[in-house]
Write a protein that binds this DNA or RNA. Structure first.
Length: 600
RNA sequence: GGGGGCGUAGCUCAGUUGGUUAGAGUGACGGCCUGUCACGCCGUAGGUCGCGGGUUCGAGCCCCGUCGCUCCCGCCA
């Protein structure tokens, strides 16, 4: 007989009755009846009830077992007594009658109970992650993650992609997030950088002629955490394809994502792969006030600036402003506090407030109510009703600002909030869309210069010769340029970002020049890539869905830590392994480093 | 870097207007119990109320500072 087990704890059935078996696992729970002890033994596969009576030789040892001790039981599988079967357990028809016991590992009193599904403080959960991972919720999530990754790999390989590894120690690249640096021992004062993404490598793989690449790629960015953004590191399904148009990338990626969602969504509705709406960036900003709209929310924002511009509309606060209206279907009868709360929230966000009109039916005509309704004559009101598509019983909120992006932004946040408050967001759906036609550049107000608004490696949607002859006095043209740059969004989360790449060295130099990099700087920073592009580069493009967020959505979690095996805190510390930690003098010396602590 | 929330027994929490010895459940320990599966019953131990300072006759509670976790803003090509 095997030293530890003949079966797992999820395996025994009626058909095993009579067999002598051996099980190993953790003591999930013990029920001591004095004359009779039940032990629920748990392993990765399940739970089996084990039982012992006082006259058994092993009784004295079993009597001492406590929660989370690791033990091996040997004994006979028996039917449970009439009426004592447990239909909640797959093994619930039988139990193991303990004949011998071996203690493999004792456990101290637990800082975090494994049994039960209460919530515990993050600090405890992270410090004792190995205990938390034993618990059902996390154990299940991590297995889900593994299965999703396996499915993604299979789907990619079936589509003719090949998985390649790329370096972890590489060079820092300009733009983007703060890098993690690794000091070089052999080259004093020089540093490797951990890749923010294998962006340049995957493009080089295309130049090298491998045609279709993918990788479950670790990415490192020294940025602060959020619920949907781990500090430090995360994983992407990184992919790149040669000789493709934007449509080819869409047709390759959508089935993988829709497929994996259908496979793991547990019956929730998923947008079919060939039906992801394509929403231009500008339209998304107008209708949803964000470039990552939650399409489950039926509310669509409209622009009503012109209505408030009419001479007979005397609401001064909205004059000469961009005014966006957010319809709130059915919100009309809500109590005053509903509107006050939203207004308060908007002020908290730095806005002047969130004006509103409630619509009521008065003898067959639609009339506006509320603090600002009296400033709007009937004709203007009717115009607004038509634009916004509201009816009696609805309300309309207003977000106004001199700057369009700020008005859009607040409207977007209000849309989300109103949708939630009014319960307009169905919970049993995954709604995908493509956001396309991102601007190539944006104006950096702080530094008064033109910046890349997204990935600097994207191909501009513009005639090559005209692009090369642009100069910085054409600011308006430049800021109006779109790129072959696209995102995949699902339920309000940005799942993926990608582009058709710029594989033309002259266009690339020009693109960086517009963003303020001299040709020399670009030549130096991207020597490898530019050099490669000068030796026969295929047109190529790709994208990189975030694995962590995909798993989070499919697990129904709202925090990445729930789907990450060993996460860091929001302050980027690993409480289990104690990272980061100081380097010793010898290490520092080898690396030619001296630490200068910040002044307090 | 900034703003909000939280911090009381191993764990989850309660704790009134500032008022005597800070409570409950659970876990731990001991006793009883032969069919439980959140077993039950009895008992015992367990507290730097995150930490430091202040106000007060008196602080878990009020004030100031600080630390930790978290959510958000900044940041995230």
């Amino acid at each position: 007989m095997h030293a530890y087990r003949t079966h797992t704890c999820g395996q025994l059935r009626k058909s095993d009755v009579g067999a002598t078996v051996r099980l190993s696992g953790w003591v999930n729970r013990r029920r001591d009846h004095g004359g009779l002890i039940f032990i629920d033994l748990r392993d990765h596969y399940g739970i089996t009830q084990c039982v012992i009576e006082p006259d058994a030789p092993a009784f004295a040892v079993v009597d001492q077992l406590r929660s989370e001790w690791v033990v091996t039981f040997t004994g006979k599988v028996v039917h449970r007594l009439e009426g004592t079967a447990n239909s909640d357990l797959p093994t619930g028809d039988v139990e193991l009658r303990i004949e011998t016991v071996a203690v493999q590992g004792r456990a101290q009193e637990l800082p975090l109970p494994v049994f039960g599904d209460l919530d515990y403080p993050e600090e405890t959960r992270l410090t004792y992650r190995f205990l938390d991972l034993r618990r059902e919720r996390l154990h299940k999530n991590i297995m889900l993650r593994a299965n999703i990754v396996t499915s993604l790999r299979r789907r990619m390989i079936e589509q003719g992609f090949t998985e390649f590894q790329t370096p972890i120690l590489t060079a820092s690249s300009p733009e983007g997030a703060r890098d993690f640096l690794v000091p070089s021992r052999r080259y004093p004062g020089q540093f490797y950088a951990l890749p923010q993404a294998p962006q340049q490598f995957k493009q080089l793989i295309m130049v090298a002629g491998f045609d279709r690449y993918f990788q479950i790629a670790p990415c490192f960015r020294d940025e602060d955490g959020r619920a949907d953004r781990s500090p430090g590191e995360f994983y992407q399904l990184d992919l790149e394809m040669s000789f493709v148009t934007q449509d080819d990338v869409f047709n390759a990626v959508a089935p993988v994502l829709a497929g994996v969602f259908e496979e793991f969504a547990n019956g929730k509705k998923v947008t079919p792969a060939d039906q992801f709406p394509r929403i231009p960036y500008a339209e998304a900003m107008l209708k949803y006030g964000t470039d990552k709209p939650d399409l489950r929310n039926p509310i669509e924002i409209v622009d009503v600036s012109t209505v408030f511009g009419h001479a007979d509309v005397e609401f001064k606060a909205f004059k000469n402003k961009i005014v966006r209206a957010i319809p709130a279907p059915g919100a009309g009868p809500q109590p005053r506090s509903f509107f006050d709360k939203l207004n308060e929230w908007a002020r908290g966000e730095g806005a002047a407030g969130l004006g509103y009109i409630q619509f009521e039916d008065e003898g067959g005509t639609l009339v506006g109510k509320g603090p600002i309704a009296k400033f709007i004559p009937a004709a203007a009101l009717a115009e607004m009703v038509k634009i916004a598509g509201v009816k009696a019983g609805d309300a309309l909120f207003f977000s106004a600002d001199a700057k369009a992006d700020r008005a859009a932004n607040l409207a977007g946040m209000a849309r989300t909030r109103i949708g939630r408050e009014l319960n307009l967001i169905p919970q049993d759906e995954f709604k995908f869309c493509w956001i396309v036609d991102f601007p190539m550049y944006e104006w950096n107000e702080e530094e008064k210069k033109i910046d890349f608004s997204h990935n600097p490696f994207s191909m501009p949607q513009y005639d090559r010769e005209k692009f090369l002859s642009l100069n910085n006095t054409d600011a308006e043209t430049i800021l109006g340029l779109k790129a072959y740059q696209y995102d995949i969004v699902c339920n309000g989360y940005e799942l993926s970002s990608g582009a058709i790449r710029n594989h033309d060295p002259d266009v690339m130099l020009k693109a960086f020049e517009i963003a303020g990099y001299t040709r020399e700087e670009t030549e130096q920073k991207f020597a490898g890539m530019l050099n490669a592009f000068r030796h026969g580069a295929p047109p190529h493009g790709g994208t990189a869905p975030g694995i962590d967020r995909i798993v989070m959505l499919l697990a129904g979690e709202e925090n990445l830590r729930e789907v990450t095996m060993f996460p860091m805190t929001q302050q980027a510390q690993d409480l289990l392994m104690n990272a980061p930690s100081p380097a010793n003098q010898k290490q520092l010396k080898e690396l030619h480093l001296r630490v200068i602590y910040p002044e307090k």
